[in-house]
Amino acid sequence: MTDATHDIPTNASAAGPHGEGPPQLFDRVLLKQRKNRAAGEFDDYNFLHARAAEDLIDRVSAVTRDFDTCLVLGGGGAVGRALKKRPDVAGKFGHVIEADLAQGLARTSTFKGLVLDEERLPIAEESVDIVLSCLSLHWTNDLVGALIQLNRALRPDGFFAGALLGGSTLTELRQSMMAAESELAGGVSARVSPFADTIDMAGLMARAGFAMPVSDVDRVTARYGNSFVLMRDLRKMGETSVLKTRPREPVTKRFFVRTAEIYSEKFAHEDGKIPATFEILHAAGWAPHPDQPKPKRPGSATVRLADALGVDERNAGQKAGD
């Protein structure tokens, strides 16, 4: 969970509650409060969650098997609502459990509601058949650790599909805030959360023990009147930064005004609207099972590749056409 453009301090105050485990970048209690506060109007501001949910369901529709128990993480009810529109996919599931960190969001679920923290997953080992995570895992302090817990919760040959916000998310806002802060205060601090890098996701899935991991990226550009409207929408989504090391002193109005000016100067379209990039990383993989296909050991082939392709074999040093 690092972003090359930010060095996140990992000082003593950012360590785990007992000085153990990975550094605590995110304040999960604050995240829960933000999500609960956003719950009332969430449906009006959940376009990202709705989009990610529909993509997750598309992915499941391509899998030719049924899943008895489906655990949904996050999304504020978006996955349940998307499932209602896709009876072909809903029909693959015996039971659907919609879980969220915030009770305000879990109680709006279409199916069985549950409140949990992905960092301390209260799910028995090998008890669910599929996990769908909708824009929730980018707030975990230990993404691999959370994925490992989910892998353990899955039965062998269970399926995981997740969507989370990636490193290019809000790049324009990040740059504008840094420029404004540098101008006004002579230094910068991390005000926008770091996100997982695109290139890491399949690797993180493999590290968490998932078989046949895949990942891809969905880049979304939303347009806003100005950065004040963008930041209001982020609050309404419950997606504003909960960095532990975020600056404690309140920022001045001047800072936000200057951020908005820089944002417009640098990024505005001809009609004056500003773009905001959201990078949704999709990752999927399977809980290991002995019957799954595995890569063969190097050198174990019994047929030459050149024969299979019906071409002449060439030495690596030879150029094509020699």
Binding site: H95, I97, K112, L114, L116, L121, P122, I123, S127, V128
Partner: peptide, 19 residues
């Protein structure tokens, strides 16, 4: 949706203590 504090049997089957 089960009323009041009734919990769905499927949830009871898969939940463990998070601690």
């Amino acid at each position: 949706r089960p009323r009041a504090s009734e919990v769905d049997p499927k949830l009871l089957e898969i939940l463990v203590c998070p601690v």
